[in-house]
Design a binder for these strands. Structure first.
Lengths: 318, 318
DNA sequence: CACTTCTGCGAGCAATAGCTCAACAAAAAT
DNA sequence: ATTTTTGTTGAGCTATTGCTCGCAGAAGTG
């Protein structure tokens, strides 16, 4: 055995000793320095070494641990500003309740701020439930802006009227989008977007602090289809193009690239920002959301995620 | 489930989250506070809670870990100033080399000090080897004092001449004890102790910074007997009285009480200090030392211990 | 319903840990 | 043998953490 190796081993022994005394023995570095007859700095270096060499390991005995781990990996992998992973609820697997509460908490935290703020919202079951979970809060200074219409082209409205409900909770100013989600024709869309209100919404969005949106899958029985925003033909055409999901009706492929084509050409929602110019939170959980969320994150269509444990795990295991 | 329990659970969740971010995520408490929207102090309390509730556990992946654990338990149990536990050496089990090196390091550390110092030493194989392991060090200002004679009553000397060897290493002043370990009669001992040199040794010991001694078992083939310091009759008598071990020839029982009786009445060594008035290190390892060391520690005959992993473990499992 | 008790909070401050830098020493290269 | 390089050290400084205290709201009590 070489002398260098011996020295290195001795160093590791000392590092292990120092780390033991520090973390397990709960002593200060000064005390350890006295005990091992080293300078305090030497002890600090040994402790740092033990940590960086993984001699000392931290283990968290709590269900939250797995969630934190997943959240951390998602944040790193997709460069997110934050990621909330809700522990899988044994009582109600597949329920969106947990995720909705987490979104509600994020909304409350943000909106508690007294400085006037513009907040954009999408639609969907998760967003709607999240708003219901929120406490009422008196914030008339805020502005709630819809990123997406809530009518089908036949004029009937989706029940997920997120802007209005959220603005009600706050007593805030509301800016719904008086338009279908997807128009009948490209001309219809162009006509709509020529209107004053669209310019206003666009300007408001530019000032917005954050956007909170759901994420949907593309397929039969997907919300977009079930609620009549998309026809059977639309769904088929999108599937053909490799659509992996949609946010505020904008369909994108598995890499998160917004699709070019006859359906997106008729989407009246405010355009997706890629990369996001402000905090952009997507929320969703369940097996059907795995592919859409993964795609949206891969394409940097969002800068934050709220989901549950099972979904988070599945998103990472591709 | 009561509301109080829910709140407590929520608190633990938060504590777990904070602890995860702090220890595993490596973030500062300030960053965590921002992320969880709490004050820094709240985060510090949560982290402390997680530690105190053992939500977060530290594990050291290194052979030293077991030694540190044993050392810590011994230090607590017997109120020691320090305890060095040397990792069990798979190559040389039962060897005293490791322990001797550790004692040598302790001696070097202490004696490196430039301020003049008095150091008392006992005898024995471990002490002798320890001194051999030491580097030479120029410290003529120190004084090395023997706690024990090194002659049998027939006049032949033990080969473990620790004082002289140690003083040689240091160029230090030496104060051997010119006497048998155990005298023939009580009168002999009294005569010896009336001599000027005994008073001097006593005074020196009173000024000593530390004592380093070995610990011996009582029985046939024990060093005291093999080297002729004790007769067969002495050993039998001591065994009868429940002797569990000896330090500088003073025999004590399993509770560490120094025995009263015809053998200790003839011991010429300086008396044991109980409780020790200075750092008093006992060193030893091996199956035969388990009982003597345990007894010595139980009776607070020493304030520090150097031993090996197997012996430490055995001392604790009684 | 008023009052007391108690828990938990944040501010401020003291203690502890981490970082940077200049100096030095050992190893490598010339 | 001398110079260069590389790595290690402790001092000094800054950032981070932990502790104490007074206060405020919740819980309990007469």
């Amino acid at each position: 055995m070489s002398d260098a190796v011996r020295t290195a081993e001795k160093r590791m022994d000392d590092a292990a000793r120092a780390a033991w005394l520090y973390f397990i023995g709960g002593k200060t570095q000064d005390e350890i320095a006295g005990q091992l007859d080293l300078s305090r700095q030497a002890v600090q270096r040994l402790v740092a070494l033990a940590v960086s060499e993984k001699l000392i390991r931290f283990r968290l005995d709590h269900p939250i641990a797995a969630c934190m781990e997943l959240a951390s990996r998602l944040t790193d992998r997709f460069e997110l500003q934050f990621c909330d992973v809700i522990p899988g609820d044994a009582q109600a697997p597949g329920s969106i309740a947990g995720v909705a509460v987490a979104v509600a908490m994020r909304l409350e935290r943000l909106l508690t701020n007294k400085a006037p703020m513009v907040l954009c919202v999408g639609t969907g079951r998760t967003m709607r439930t999240a708003v219901e979970e929120m406490d009422t809060l008196d914030r008339p200074q805020h502005k709630i802006v819809s990123l997406v219409g809530n009518m089908a082209s036949d004029g009937h409205a989706s029940p997920y009227d997120v802007v209005m409900r959220l603005a009600d909770k706050l007593g805030a100013q509301r800016f719904p989008m008086p338009a279908p989600v997807i128009t009948e024709t490209i001309e219809d869309r162009e006509a709509l977007q020529g209107q004053r209100v669209f310019t206003l919404l666009s300007e408001l969005r530019a000032q917005a602090r954050a956007s909170f949106v759901g994420v949907g899958e593309i397929g039969w029985n997907a919300p977009m289809h079930r609620d009549g925003f998309m026809t059977d033909a639309d769904v088929s055409a999108l599937a053909e193009q490799g659509a992996a999901g949609e946010i505020t009706a904008w369909s994108f492929d598995a890499a998160g690239r917004v699709l070019q084509g006859p359906i997106n050409d008729r989407v009246a929602s405010l355009p997706l920002e890629c990369p996001p110019q402000r905090l952009t939170v997507i929320a969703g959980s369940g097996p059907s959301k795995i592919v859409p969320i993964r795609a949206a994150l891969a394409g940097h269509l969002a800068s934050a995620l709220v989901t549950d444990e099972a979904t988070a795990s599945a998103i990472l295991s591709n």
